[in-house]
């Protein structure tokens, strides 16, 4: 090879020139603007820029693009947003965001909140032990209900009226062994006179002439009867009316009837009472002879036999059993009776 051939630059081009196409120049515009191109390529892009309007247009567009992106850097983030992102999110906050609770209608939000409040109140009312709370708060600890204890002993201090009666009255009879005097616990005084008076047949005070219409206080009636012998024997205090001052819930049946030939009939009555399960309830025996013309029966009988006994009594005469309140309480199913049988007056 000759020297001239060696000095000629090696050409790869068929036409012995190498030019950059517009397409390549446009693709290299970014590198050109960033300064990444070498000298030859930079010159080629610049020459295409000056000659090709499309390349020039694209170059201008890219310039605008860079300028616009530079403006977008002015967007700022508020400090509270940074704090919110830094703190961990709770389950509730995530749930509210997912459900977009803020966009719900106001009425729906209020409805849900009211429902939640009502459910809370209902749960509180159901769970709270109100009976215990009432006992602790309303009822003080020192307030207790005490059941009254009824004592059989007539000398007990439970009832003032009974003790007063015992002191002031002269009972016609009793179950005491010594003097055979009568009931001291009864608050009703049959009469101050020695002869027992007939009991009113009905509890209605208006049916009896001498029975006072008012219901006298037992103490007053007792004291009034006790102070006198001057007490009118015809006046009979109302017995059958329930004495509201009687402390206990006990009662007894009191009856009285007159028969002919009481001495014959009295033992029969006694036998019948005992046959029906009667037991003496006081100190004296059933059918105690109080006087020549009077027999006294103070006994207990099963309630189931009471009707049968009453029917037996009626074969002689209706005893007109009157139920009276009495502090002495009998067991369930047991009745206590005081019956007086007298000789019928001719």
């Amino acid at each position: 090879m000759s020297r001239e051939e060696n000095e000629k630059p090696q050409s790869y081009s068929k036409w012995n020139k190498r030019e950059m196409s517009s397409f390549v120049a446009q693709e290299l515009l970014y590198d050109y603007m960033k300064g990444f191109l070498d000298e030859s390529r930079r010159n080629a892009v610049e020459s295409d820029l000056s000659e090709n309007p499309i390349t020039k247009k694209k170059h201008q567009q890219m310039m605008k693009g860079f300028a616009y992106l530079e403006k977008l850097r002015s967007v700022e983030v508020q400090p509270f947003l940074i704090e919110q992102i830094d703190e961990p999110s709770t389950y509730l906050s995530v749930l509210l965001k997912k459900s977009q609770f803020e966009k719900w209608p106001q009425s729906l939000k209020w409805g849900i909140e009211a429902f939640v409040v009502l459910m809370g109140i209902a749960l509180f009312l159901i769970v709270t032990p109100w009976d215990k709370a009432i006992r602790l708060v309303i009822l003080p600890q020192n307030q207790q209900v005490i059941l009254a204890e009824v004592q059989k002993d007539p000398r007990s201090n439970n009832s003032v009226s009974l003790s007063d009666i015992e002191k002031n009255e002269k009972p016609q009879f009793s179950d005491d062994k010594k003097d055979g005097k009568g009931e001291a616990a009864t608050e009703v005084v049959v009469a101050s006179n020695e002869k027992p008076a007939a009991l009113p047949p009905t509890p209605q005070p208006s049916t009896e002439k001498n029975v006072p219409a008012a219901k006298p206080v037992p103490i007053a009636a007792a004291t009034g009867a006790a102070t006198g012998a001057s007490a009118d024997p015809k006046k009979q205090p109302e017995i059958s009316a329930a004495d509201k001052k009687t402390p206990s819930g006990g009662f007894l049946f009191r009856g009285q009837f007159n028969v002919t030939n009481v001495e014959m009939i009295a033992p029969k009555l006694k036998e019948k009472i005992i046959a029906l399960g009667g037991r003496k309830a006081g100190e004296v025996e059933i059918g105690w002879k109080k006087s020549d013309t009077t027999y006294y029966y103070h006994f207990t009988i099963p309630e189931a036999k009471f009707e049968e006994l009453n029917e037996y009594f009626k074969t002689y005469e209706d005893p007109h059993m009157v139920k009276e309140k009495h502090p002495r309480v009998m067991p369930d199913g047991i009745l206590r009776l005081i019956l007086t049988v007298e000789e019928k007056r001719k």
Partner: peptide, 12 residues
């Protein structure tokens, strides 16, 4: 990036 810039430039 070059494609992005060209697109943005065309939209501005």
């Amino acid at each position: 990036l070059s494609h992005s810039i060209k697109k943005i430039g065309a939209l501005v």
